[in-house]
């Protein structure tokens, strides 16, 4: 098992995840019809499925170039850029790297915009039309996409934001840290 390639680890892990998904899972409270959607920011390490629930409203904003461009315009109009600049931060944290304090999924970014966060992020819920908050969320999500970063030509990033593919949010739960040298977490006695 020590000679296993990283790719096979990935495939095995993906299969394990798929297996879990197929298994009988108790419906999460937020999955129940008629309930307002609650999105978890806290992610639990060590569980092999994501506890993050999904919000059906997010669907329309994936692969949506219009939405991401509207978000870019709104990001200036609502003074988001005053704190977060063009993704590099300032008064608020940068948004173009791979660090997400309150979660990276569209639902989570939207939730952060709606509720605000305790260290200085204002609450925009009921102050900005909800559709615009989704457009802002998808622009923020786009800032750190490899395609958006690759499109930066000068010292002002996020000017050509790529639409956000749904794949970008597929693995929002706990996943193994990348580039570890040794990984024994998938070693199950009797399986290998």
């Amino acid at each position: 098992m020590y000679s296993r390639s990283p790719i096979s680890v990935v495939v095995l892990f993906a299969l394990l995840l798929a297996g879990c998904n197929r298994g009988a899972q108790p419906a999460l409270p937020a999955d129940q019809p008629g309930r307002s959607v609650v999105i978890d920011s806290a992610l639990d390490p060590g569980v092999e499925h994501s506890l993050v629930t999904t919000d059906p409203r997010a669907t329309a904003y994936y692969n949506n170039a219009d939405a991401v461009n509207s978000g870019k315009r709104l990001f200036q109009q609502y003074n988001c850029s005053g704190c977060h600049s063009n993704g590099g931060g300032g008064m608020g944290p940068d948004l173009m790297d791979d660090v997400w304090i309150y979660g990276s999924r569209l639902e989570q970014i939207h939730q952060t915009l709606v509720e605000g966060r305790p260290n200085g992020m204002p609450s925009w819920g009921n102050k900005v039309p909800d559709q615009q908050l989704w457009q802002l969320a998808v622009y923020v999500r786009s800032m750190s996409l490899p395609q958006t970063l690759a499109a930066q030509t000068d010292n002002t990033p996020s000017q050509t934001p790529a639409p956000v593919p749904p794949e970008a949010d597929q693995d929002a739960g706990w996943s193994p840290p990348q580039a570890t040298t040794n990984d024994y977490t998938t070693t199950t006695p009797g399986v290998d």
């Binding site: 600049s85 590099g88 940068d94 790297d97 010292n155 990033p157």
Partner: peptide
């Protein structure tokens, strides 16, 4: 010095009101 005490990404020259550049 906010580019160090951040969190600020040095790839954005306009960050911290243009200081990061």
């Amino acid at each position: 010095g906010a580019v160090v005490s951040g969190p600020i990404d040095p790839r954005d020259g306009s960050a911290a009101l243009g200081m990061v550049n």
